[in-house]
Amino acid sequence: MRIVAEKLDVILADYNNSSSLIYGIGNIGRQDDGLGWAFIDWLEEQSICPKAELMRHYQLHLEDADLISYKKQVLFVDATKVPEVESFLLEKIEPKMDFSFSSHAISIPSIMATCRQCFEKVPEVQLLTIKGYEWELQLGLTEKAKQNLKAAIDFFKQNH
């Protein structure tokens, strides 16, 4: 089972400061699309990283380039359908203008590239993607998605 990428240097304790941002992307009204927010819920419930800025949003917007420009490190958390991710994947993201923009969403690499272009700096960014299965209009994660969330949480507990 491929659960993590090469970069495993995220220790949540390192995020416990005001120059860190942990950003859950998703929509709890769309079943497993709520995985990103569920991870933020867990952080709040356990009082983990209380000094970091925690955020939930439906998708990224261009002004998130401004938001991350004030941070030294950012952890984005999102759900994924990608077949290669069996449970969860943690990876380092590099800036790249990929022209994936729509007025509803923009990619993390593009946000980072915009940040660098406009503000002449860019934080370290890691992305945690957690595998989801159902995206219908319904509240609540599927059981398999809950298991993947737990696996991701256990991973961070071990590295905490």
Binding site: E63, D66, F99, F101, Q117
Partner: peptide, 25 residues
């Protein structure tokens, strides 16, 4: 189309995009 969007604008005129971001924010 890859150029005719705000991401193209970021590369062409980052100062304008900074103002757009500031307005939206």
């Amino acid at each position: 189309p890859q150029q005719r969007n705000v991401v193209g604008l970021v590369e062409a005129d980052p100062e304008l995009v900074k103002r757009v971001v500031a307005l939206r924010k």
